[in-house]
């Protein structure tokens, strides 16, 4: 029964290759996008780390983007 399912009436190669290609390329784009996002989040957090703590707190209070990034990086002190 599993062989029958994998064989797909003799068209298994075309069907499984189609689904596999879609899965692989969607995963690659997801992985690259997530990696880039994490990289920029980390870089921004590192830039903020260089600032004096009072300045950093003031920025975090005034900018939701910054406070969200700092919170996600667990660097809000």
């Amino acid at each position: 029964m599993i062989n029958e399912f994998l064989n797909m009436g003799g068209y298994g190669f075309y069907i499984w290759t189609s689904f596999l290609i879609v899965t692989v390329f969607c995963f690659i784009l997801y992985y690259k996008t997530k990696k880039t996002l994490k990289k920029y989040e980390k870089e921004l957090a590192q830039e903020l780390e260089k600032l004096p703590i009072e300045h950093r707190k003031r920025i975090a209070r005034s900018s939701k983007v910054i406070s969200s990034i700092l919170a996600s990086q667990n660097k809000l002190s």
Partner: peptide
């Protein structure tokens, strides 16, 4: 759903890039 997920992550990345460029002005 997949498209929405990728779009949101890319959009967030673009916002962070802008914030990173403007960090000295904050």
């Amino acid at each position: 759903l997949y498209c929405a997920l990728i779009f949101l992550m890319k959009y967030k990345t673009e916002i962070i890039k802008i914030k990173k460029r403007n960090i000295k002005r904050l």
